[in-house]
Lab assay of single mutants.
Amino acid sequence: KKIKIDLKKGPEGLGFTVVTRDSSIHGPGPIFVKNILPKGAAIKDGRLQSGDRILEVNGRDVTGRTQEELVAMLRSTKQGETASLVIAR
């Protein structure tokens, strides 16, 4: 099931960490939400869960991207702006 979640970045950030699983010589594996932090946009919104697979960030497919690339995409969202995620659960 795909779910679109918009998180408005506040002073505590987006409020979640990510982890890559099953990376191989063929490229990075899928990226999942690792933890929801006690402060930040994710816990206020309440929909994002540990174990959700991140498919898109701000309309860009993240398949084949590294964890570092995904984190850079999320960090490029400025405070007060919205990060738009599509996740699979």
Rank of each mutant, 00 (worst) to 15 (best):
N35Y: 09
G27V: 10
I43T: 11
L7M: 15
D45W: 00
Q49F: 10
V86W: 07
R47H: 05
E56Y: 12
V62R: 02
D52W: 00
I3R: 01
E68N: 06
I31H: 06
E68M: 05
K39T: 10
Q49A: 13
H26N: 10
S23K: 03
D6Q: 13
K2R: 02
E56F: 10
K8L: 05
P38V: 12
I43C: 05
M73A: 06
L37R: 02
K4E: 07
S76V: 13
T20N: 10
G29Q: 11
N58A: 12
E81C: 12
N58P: 00
F32V: 09
K9Q: 15
L48W: 00
S76E: 14
K4H: 09
T20R: 09
V71S: 12
G27N: 09
V62M: 05
E68I: 03
D22G: 04
G51R: 05
R47L: 08
G64Q: 09
N58L: 03
I25P: 07
L74V: 13
E69M: 10
R65C: 11
I5G: 00
R89F: 00
V71W: 15
E56Q: 12
R21S: 13
V19G: 15
P30I: 08
E81T: 14
K44G: 13
V71C: 10
Q79S: 11
I43D: 14
Q49P: 00
G10A: 10
F32T: 11
V62P: 04
D45Y: 02
V86M: 07
E69L: 03
A88T: 13
G10D: 13
E56D: 09
A72T: 07
Q79C: 09
T17D: 14
K34V: 14
E69Y: 06
L7T: 00
L37N: 04
G80N: 14
L48K: 01
N58C: 12
I3V: 04
T66L: 05
F32I: 13
A42L: 02
T17M: 06
A83T: 15
T77Y: 14
I54H: 00
I36H: 01
S23E: 14
L7W: 01
R60I: 07
L14V: 04
E69I: 08
A41F: 03
L70T: 04
H26T: 13
A83D: 11
E81V: 08
G46N: 10
R65F: 07
L48C: 02
P28S: 10
N35M: 13
G29H: 11
E81Q: 15
R89Q: 03
S84D: 13
V62I: 08
A83C: 15
E81H: 12
V86D: 10
A88R: 11
I54A: 00
G59P: 01
R53V: 14
R89Y: 01
R53T: 11
S50W: 04
V18W: 11
G27L: 10
G15Q: 00
P38N: 08
A88Q: 15
A88Y: 15
L7K: 05
V86T: 12
I36C: 03
T82P: 07
E69C: 07
S50A: 13
K34P: 03
G40I: 02
A41E: 14
A83L: 11
R65A: 06
T66F: 05
L14C: 03
V62G: 03
K4L: 14
P30Y: 10
D6T: 14
S84M: 04
A83K: 12
R47Q: 12
A42T: 02
S24C: 04
P30M: 05
Q79I: 04
I3K: 03
S50I: 11
I5S: 00
A41I: 09
G59W: 02
L14G: 00
I87E: 03
V19T: 13
G51D: 08
